[in-house]
Amino acid sequence: MKVDIQDYCIRCGLCEDLYPVLFHLNIEDDKIDLKYEGDIPAELEDMAREARRDCAIAAIFLS
């Protein structure tokens, strides 16, 4: 499973507050850094699904 952030993400940082294992709000570069650029570990897939549900603007996509 891969995690992708859509361009319309508002950089609120909610994803990092809830799931710091997967996301980091990079304030300096004004973007969300993904902790895993490729496939995420299988044990984090449920967490990624929760993150997708929790995102304030539905900007987290999973594939």
Binding site: I10, C12, L14, L18, D54, C55, A56, A58
Partner: peptide
């Protein structure tokens, strides 16, 4: 009415 755990103004 927000999306997920965020507040509504984003939507």
């Amino acid at each position: 009415k927000g999306q997920g755990k965020g507040h509504g103004a984003a939507v």
